[in-house]
Design a protein around this nucleic acid. Structure first.
Lengths: 295, 295
DNA sequence: TTAATTGTCAACATAGTATTGATAAAGGTG
DNA sequence: CACCTTTATCAATACTATGTTGACAATTAA
C-alpha cells in the first residue's frame, strides 16, 4: 500500500464518517478501504478508529493522524506544484460543486473548454442546492450564490448576475404591460424564496432612483427553474436570473418587463478552504471561471 | 512504487551523488533505484537529474524536489512518532557512526542491551576515524571525540573520558618508574597524534597543580590501539584513554604511571543534524548512551 | 422479527514488484 | 590511444502483492 494512499484513505474515512462513503469518494471498494485502514493501524501499531459495524469513533491517535495527514498531503501537493512549476499542466481529480440551475445552464457549457485546456485533469461536478459540507463531500471548489460566513473558507467574488422581471405573453395580454414600477404591485407575482427579499422587490431606474415595490404573491418556490415554468404558464410576473430566461425571452415564451429598470442582482462566489496553499488545479479553475464570466 | 519510497530514493541519490551508492544505502538493487527515479520523474513530468553514465547533476527541479522531500519525510516520521507517542517502541533502521576504537571497545558491548530494549529497531554501526560526511553516508547519529563547528549539527556532550599514562613492565624495569611529572621528560614517549597536544603533555596533581611536560618522542601514530601496542612492546610511556588500556593494566601487560596525577581528558559527543525534529530512535539512542556512560 | 446497511473476511485473477544478468556509455589509467 | 573499470539502464524472470468480488457476521431502524 502506498503510504500516501493510506493517509488519503484515513482522511476520507474521517471526513465522511464512514468506510463505505470513503470508498465512494475515493473510487475504490469498501473492502480495500477497510484493508488500508487496517494496514495503517498495524504499521503504526495503534488503533485509529473504535469501530462497531455501525458506529465509527476516532481515537486520539486517529485525530492526531488525521490532522497531521491533512497537513502532509497538502504540503505534498504543494511540493508537486512547486517542482513542476507552470511547466506541466495540472493533473488529478478536481471536484466542483455548483447550484443546480447555474451548474446546468452556465457551468456545464464551458466545461469542455476547461477540460481541453487541461487534458490531464479529471473533473467531477456535483450540482446541488443543499448547503453541502465541503469537507464531508470532498469538494475542492464550490460555486455559490452569495458568500459564506465560515472563517476557514475563502469566498472569491467571480461576478454579479442581474435578475430581470418577466412574464408570459399571454399573461401580459390579459393583464396589461406594466409601464412603471408602481404598476407591478397590481399584478400577481411569483416569489423565488432563494432570494431573501420576499415580497419587497427593489427596482432601480436608469438614472439611479431606487424604489421598493410591495408585490402581491400567493406562490413562492425555491427553484428559479420552477419560477420560470410558473411564469411561462401565465402565473404572473417573476424575478429571475437573466441567464436562466434569456433563451425563453429570445424564443418569445417570456417577455421582459420594465427593461429600462434594473432589479436585484446576486454575486457568484467561488468558495474554497482557507489554507496556506491552494492547489494549482483549484487556482486554474477559478482563473478559468473568472476569465469566462468576465463581463 | 510507494510515493514516500520514491522520495527517499531521490533523497539518497542526491545525498550520495550516485545511483549505485544510493542503492547500497537503501539496501536495494541499483536497477530499482534507476526505476524509482524514473518513475518519480515521469509522475512529475519533469527531469530531476541530468545524467550521463558517469556524471550526475541536479536540475533546479531536482534541487527543489530534494529539499521539499527532505522536509516532508522528516515531518512524516515526526507525525508517526507523535501519533504512536511513547506507546510503541521505535522501529526502523538507525545508523550510527563511531570512532573505531571507541566503537569496538565501549559501544559494541552495550549494543545488545540497546537492541533488547528496542527489539523492533535495526541498527547499523559504522566505525570509522575518517571525518565522514553524515549526510552523504546517511548516518543518523555520530559519536565523536570532540565537538563540531558545523552550525547545522548539534553536538551533545555525553561525558568526558580520562587518559592515563602507562608503560610496559619491561620498560619500567629497564628505565625506572617515574616518581614525579618531571621524570617523564627523561623517558621515551609515544605520541597519539589524534590528541592535539603533541609533545606538551599536561599533568595535574591531586591538589590541582597543573604543569606541562615537554616529552621526548620519536614516534607518533594516529591510533590509540597502535599506541597501546607500541607501549606494550616496550616503546616507552604512552598517554592513552583509560578505557582502552584498563584491560591491559588489569592483565599486567601495562603499568599505570603517576596514578595520583591526572592528565588530558577528552569529551565524547553525540552529533546529529540540527533540525526542528529529532526522530525518536535518535533520541532513544542518545538517552541510552547517556545513561550507560553516566559516571 | 425483518430488513437493510455496515465493516470484514477469504479467495481469486491480475498486475505490479524487485532481482538478476546483460548492455552501452563514459572516464580514468597506463 | 586502447584498455579496463565503473556507471546507469534495459530486458527477462520469478514472485509477491494488489484490488475486486461475493459471502459473512454484526448492528440498528422499522
Amino acid at each position: 500500500m502506498d503510504t500516501l494512499d493510506g493517509m488519503k484513505t484515513v482522511v476520507a474515512v474521517v471526513e465522511t464518517h464512514s468506510f463505505t462513503a470513503a470508498s465512494e469518494r475515493l473510487g475504490m471498494s469498501k473492502a480495500l478501504v477497510s484493508k488500508y485502514v487496517g494496514e495503517v493501524e498495524s504499521s503504526l501499531g495503534i488503533r485509529l478508529f473504535n469501530r462497531t459495524t455501525r458506529q465509527l469513533a476516532l481515537t486520539d491517535a486517529g485525530r492526531s493522524y488525521y490532522e497531521h495527514s491533512l497537513n502532509l498531503l497538502e504540503q505534498f501537493s504543494a511540493m508537486v506544484d512547486n517542482v513542476t512549476g507552470e511547466q506541466t499542466s495540472p493533473r488529478g481529480l478536481l471536484r466542483i460543486s455548483a447550484p443546480v440551475t447555474f451548474g446546468e445552464m452556465k457551468l456545464s457549457p464551458i466545461m469542455p473548454k476547461f477540460l481541453q485546456m487541461y487534458p490531464e485533469l479529471n473533473v467531477e461536478v456535483k450540482v446541488t442546492n443543499n448547503a453541502i459540507d465541503m469537507v464531508e463531500e470532498g469538494v475542492d471548489v464550490r460555486l455559490r450564490i452569495g458568500g459564506v460566513a465560515d472563517s476557514n473558507m475563502i469566498a472569491r467574488h467571480i461576478r454579479t448576475f442581474p435578475l430581470i422581471l418577466c412574464a408570459s405573453p399571454a399573461y401580459i395580454e390579459k393583464h396589461g404591460m406594466p409601464e412603471t414600477p408602481e404598476d407591478i404591485s397590481k399584478h400577481a407575482c411569483i416569489i423565488d424564496s432563494n432570494f431573501r427579499v420576499g415580497k419587497q422587490w427593489p427596482v432601480i431606474s436608469k438614472n439611479g432612483d431606487a424604489t421598493t415595490i410591495n408585490v402581491n404573491s400567493n406562490i413562492a418556490v425555491n427553484s428559479p427553474k420552477a419560477v420560470q415554468e410558473i411564469a411561462m404558464a401565465g402565473g404572473g410576473i417573476a424575478m429571475i436570473p437573466e441567464f436562466i430566461v434569456e433563451g425563453a425571452i429570445k424564443a418569445g415564451s417570456l417577455i421582459s418587463i420594465l427593461p429600462d429598470y434594473t432589479t436585484l442582482e446576486f454575486g457568484l462566489f467561488a468558495i474554497y478552504p482557507h489554507r496556506k496553499y491552494v492547489s494549482r488545479k483549484v487556482r486554474c479553475f477559478i482563473d478559468f471561471v473568472l476569465e469566462e464570466f468576465s463581463v
